[in-house]
Nucleic acid binder design. Structure first.
Length: 221
DNA sequence: GCGACAG
DNA sequence: ATCTTGTCGC
């Protein structure tokens, strides 16, 4: 898998901000994914040794069957701290390592974190999508920024996520009566399509099967 | 200046 | 993210 990384990895928040500001305009929020999506992947992170070691997991599933066809795990020293708004700089290095191990290149990737629902519109899903030029969707378990109206309890219901008068994502109920997920375009996927794929990748749990499988790989010890 | 704050 | 048992509710 080719990686389009033109920028050096930042060492400070100031450098990270400069990178985010430079890349934000390259994000595509229109659908530019394959006619037929055959493989969907989920990526997730885990940490070991007091957080000094990052563990990234990737799970590639068939679509729409959602059968696991390939998985990979990669380890590398953790170099960037967790700072809200800069998650990608902490997690992407290990994620790229894991993705490089996979032979089946997914047509779409669901990330554990925000896409453009970010202060500078470059959450981890968007940043990753840009670096590998693969369609991505941000599916976070909690809110980073934005406001929204209460979401009906039934699965499939959603409300727009607004920030500075702009719709940056959707708060989607992926399971009736359970806390919603925060969905947003990552790269090359529109919000409507993102919502559609998240629901089509979700069976009986709150999390999409993709991230749920990757989640298990990243934490099952 | 005071809160909020993905994983 | 991670540390952790039982418990409430469909």
């Amino acid at each position: 898998m080719k990686i389009y990384q033109e920028h050096a990895w930042p060492q400070t928040v100031e450098e990270a901000i400069a990178i985010q500001e430079k890349l934000r305009d390259q994000i595509i929020t229109e659908d530019k994914l394959p006619e037929t999506v055959q493989y969907v992947a989920g990526v997730d992170m885990g940490f070991e040794a007091d957080g000094t070691i990052s563990r990234a997991a990737v799970a590639v599933l068939s679509f729409p069957g959602l059968q696991v066809v390939e998985t990979a795990i990669a380890y590398r020293p953790t170099t960037f701290p967790y700072i809200p708004g800069f998650l990608s700089f902490r997690e992407i290095p290990a994620v790229l390592d894991a993705l490089e191990k996979v032979k089946i290149i997914p047509d779409l990737i669901l990330c554990d974190g925000q896409g453009i629902a970010h202060p500078r519109r470059l959450g981890i899903a968007s940043h990753l999508g840009l670096l590998i030029d693969i369609p991505t969707i941000g599916a976070a378990k909690s809110l980073l920024i934005g406001k929204y109206e209460e979401v009906p309890e039934t699965k499939g219901s959603w409300q727009p996520l607004i920030h500075k008068g702009e719709t940056i994502g959707a708060v989607l109920r992926t399971r009736t009566g359970v806390k919603p997920l925060y969905i947003s375009s990552g790269h090359r996927v529109s919000l409507a399509t993102a919502i559609d794929y998240v629901l089509r990748c979700t069976t009986k749990y709150r999390l999409p099967e993709t991230t749920r499988i990757a989640d298990k790989l990243a934490s099952d010890r």
